[in-house]
């Protein structure tokens, strides 16, 4: 008999619908990843006990871990589905079912798709951009030494997957913590020669409720980040600057 992969998927047909677990058995092929497994189910949406069901809803786009769409809980852990290889997940244990579930800290849209727009709202509230005068030709930008570039580049690699937020014990609906990704972006833009003009505003924003103070330094973010952003370093640096800014503001504003 050809080998199959057992999958258990936590499903929810809409945000208010009850949660159900559906089991599937998908024909094994070498080098399968979770997104291709889900594609296989879409082609043949029949559960392990023979019931026809709807294809699984989930987000994906690039399929090469760069767009940040496909974060979900795979065997309970938050990671990117497109870079999660079945062979590695099952490592020597092919009968063990793979479990898939939506990220737990974000409102479920449907099945494995969740609404992560809060990150984009956060990026707005910290003004994560360089306020350029305009897009007309104003000549070359100021010089920037490679050392600065090397510090900024890794921060600029954040794919907004929200995994750092999902795994953070402090990111939840009672703290409403902003999460590591936004803090890292503040560092990125504060380091840009022109972007630093908004530095004070960003630092003040981050001292608001849910701001940088809510981090308990659990360091899960930096462990889990698929793009290996130096998140704890950013949190540390940014918090220092927020504190300095608050003290300054206390005496001068």
């Amino acid at each position: 008999m050809p080998r199959t992969i057992k999958v258990e998927i936590k499903r929810q047909s809409n945000p208010d619908a009850p949660v159900v677990i559906e089991k599937f058995e998908v024909p094994y092929r070498p080098n399968m990843n979770i997104t291709s497994l889900l594609g296989e189910i879409a082609c043949n949406p029949i559960t392990a006990d023979g019931k026809t069901t709807a294809p699984i809803a989930y987000d994906s786009n690039c399929l090469e871990e760069i767009c940040g769409s496909c974060a979900m809980l795979i065997n309970g852990k938050a990671r990117m589905a497109c870079s999660a290889l079945v062979d590695k997940l099952q490592d020597g244990n092919p009968d063990e079912p793979i479990t898939l579930a939506p990220l737990s800290k974000f409102p479920v849209v449907r099945d494995l798709a969740v609404d992560r727009s809060v990150l984009f709202q956060n990026l707005k509230s910290v003004k994560a951009w360089v306020p350029i005068d305009g897009t007309y030709d104003l000549g070359a930008a100021p010089r920037q030494f490679p050392q600065i570039q090397e510090e900024r580049y890794p921060l600029s690699n954040c794919i907004s997957c929200t995994i750092c937020m999902e795994v953070c014990p402090q990111f939840n609906d009672s703290t409403n913590f902003v999460g590591a990704a936004t803090i890292a972006q503040v560092k990125l833009f504060n380091m840009d020669p022109a972007g630093s003009v908004l530095k004070e505003e960003r630092l003040r924003a981050l001292a608001g409720d849910g701001g940088v103070q809510e981090c308990g330094f659990a360091q899960n973010c930096v462990e889990a980040c698929p793009k290996q952003l130096p998140l704890t370093e950013a949190i540390s640096d940014v918090t220092r600057e927020v504190i300095v800014q608050q003290v300054k503001d206390f005496f001068t504003r």
Binding site: V130, L138, G139, A141, R143, P146, Y153, F189
Partner: peptide, 21 residues
């Protein structure tokens, strides 16, 4: 060239020469 300069001004972390270009 103007588009590259613009992107640079927008903060794209382009790789640099030792002189900062």
């Amino acid at each position: 060239p103007a588009i590259i300069d613009l992107l640079d001004r927008m903060g794209v972390p382009f790789n640099r020469t030792p002189e900062g270009l």
